[in-house]
Design a protein around this nucleic acid. Structure first.
Lengths: 356, 356
DNA sequence: CTGAAAGCGCTAACAC
DNA sequence: GTGTTAGCGCTTTCAG
């Protein structure tokens, strides 16, 4: 059974050491103006009592909590979790704690209470790591612009007034398409993500622009909207084959959609990559083990999360040093192509095991 | 550009309303002893100023923060993320905020600073949601038993002195094995998770006991240790076929390992489920779309997370009401079997699309 | 070098 | 009903 242990306060340490609380405070904060003997004695008593200062009381008086508010959505998906993991590592590294709020939905519009919960606990800054879906950016922009602490957007469309750190989804789409075109595919269809997502629109735009640049047709029939899920991928490819029978390759909005497409193609007896080339997006761990293994676009979400943390701490420190406004910055990270079997037509195939 | 907006304090509200801060406090806390007119006037001013009380100051004086400390590890994996999502939802529901600490490794042994970061911020309780790996339970037990706040373990071996909420992994393994045996498989191999994980050992024990109960052989050759990853699954099954050529079914430690095994079997031209039956564990979203779709064990991690939150709040409330020690409780949730194609031998196959 | 006084933003206990 | 005093646990003046 747990032994409830009360935490000693600075007062108890002081009376035990026979000095005032300020002296304890001085020792804690490593101020020079304490005699070596007093310092040593106090430190011993601190250790003996297991005393730790209250970060809460400190936050109150210093007006700085060394805590970051994180707003996130969709932790049941892999992407947001990886982002959160990156944030956690970077925050730990920088000596910040994390106050976490998960939105029940991506397009939650009642965000006042979310901010309130964070601000009333005196966070030093807020990272908004919610994908931009529908109009949810509008709501948050409205609230964010009159906020008492700095804010950084993660995974959102670049903007003028607030710092943004994101993956360059458009660039990623271009890379995927270049690869398919290089492999000789010419009838390339697209299974998009839900088009109220900014990321889905970016990837789709890259698909369309790539076809245009290559002098190819870009009829609406060549694109079907999915919802990121494997099942939507399977349904989408079926529809795609209906309305675009010549299709010889697919750029899928994400790996899970691609998986659904592969599943369908396998069942139809289509050979991948000979009859149909497929490229995904995300590079989820499983994608190296699909049958066939999936060529995809890797986005380093862990890394952008760290950049976001660094950025917000930079802003916090700047404002703390009296700089009233820090110039908003936009950081767009390019993703990279991971070539696997699903798109390698007529070339030497890699062995998936050796590079997973 | 963001407009830095200072938050008003209770003092400003008070002087604006021409009353003392005490009266504001009374209105905030909905005390009866305020005249209707005063109350109304104060409320209007609060709204006008956009005043919100500081949860920090409240925590300090009330000795209660309505904040839960969450210690977690492995957010890059799906399981812990789902757990966190469940915790977040339940905490939100109960009006608690979340202070998050992610361990850099599962078997991190320097946990003092982790606890310290949470306790110095006056969390009301701690949920330890780190899988039990190697000796990490020993370290935490040592620290946990003399803690100033309640603690609940999530996903850990039941114990006598502290409350635990977990999935019954052993039971899950038994269900998986019963299913394979019912389908007529008799040479059932196991690809385990890393055996320093408690969950991996539980699932393996279930595999062994099931074979014993069925009067079947349980040679060590029938089991290969993996590390949860698809690649380890592929390597493990190869080894398994080497040392146990008669194998006609595999109970995989998790879905990703099963995916690696499927990948290998497909490449070898083995038919699943005819030549080889496969059952996984976890029911990840992708598993319904493997080729063939994967029979697996579903564990409701979202749900156990909610139970853990409820449990710790119950303990917090109890201690708050003067009950010194609350009897530790163990909640073991049984997982459920999800039947798909990979194990359905000689029976009518479901169509994976229709039930995904 | 060290202590006393004041206060961060709020609330509990007691006056009036 | 409402104000005053005191104090949560700590730090920041400013004396001495």
């Amino acid at each position: 059974m747990r032994q409830k242990v009360a935490r000693p306060t600075i007062k108890e340490v002081a009376s035990m050491a026979g000095v005032s609380t300020q002296t304890i405070s001085r020792v804690l904060n490593e101020r020079p103006d304490v005699s070596p003997e007093t310092r040593k004695r106090v430190q011993e008593i601190i250790k003996e009592l297991g005393y730790r200062p209250s970060a809460l009381a400190r936050s109150l008086i210093r007006q700085r909590s060394h805590t970051l508010g994180i707003v996130i959505a969709g932790l049941r998906y892999l992407g947001p979790s990886r982002v959160l993991s990156g944030i956690a590592a970077a925050a730990e590294e920088a000596g910040y704690s994390l106050l976490l709020q998960e939105l029940p939905q991506f397009d939650e519009n009642d965000i006042e209470p979310i901010f309130e919960a964070l601000l009333s606990r005196h966070v030093d800054g807020i990272i908004w790591a919610v994908p931009q879906v529908g109009e949810n950016r509008a709501w948050i922009n409205h609230s964010a612009l009159e906020l008492s602490v700095p804010l950084v957007y993660l995974t959102m469309e670049p903007q003028t007034d607030i710092s943004v750190v994101a993956i360059d989804n458009y660039q990623g789409g271009r890379i995927a398409m270049s690869h398919l075109l290089e492999q000789g595919y010419r009838n390339i269809g697209h299974i998009s993500g839900p088009l109220d997502w900014w990321e889905a629109r970016q990837r789709m735009a890259a698909w369309k622009d790539s076809l245009l640049d290559a002098g190819l047709d870009t009829s609406d029939k060549f694109c079907v909207e999915g919802n990121w899920s494997p099942v939507s991928g399977a349904l989408a490819i079926e529809k795609l084959f209906d309305q675009y029978p010549e299709v010889d390759a697919i750029f899928a909005g994400n790996d899970q959609t691609a998986l659904g497409a592969i599943h369908f193609a396998n069942q139809k007896g289509l050979r991948i990559p000979e009859d149909l080339g497929i490229v995904g997006f995300d590079n989820i761990a499983e994608s190296a083990f699909f049958s066939p293994s999936l060529t995809t676009i890797d986005q380093d979400q862990y890394n952008i999360a760290q950049l976001a943390v660094e950025e917000i701490i930079k802003i916090i420190d700047a404002e703390w040093q009296g700089i009233e406004q820090v110039e908003p910055k936009t950081i767009l990270l390019p993703p990279t192509l991971i070539v696997r079997q699903s798109s390698l037509r007529g070339k030497e195939k890699e062995v998936s095991l050796s590079r997973a």
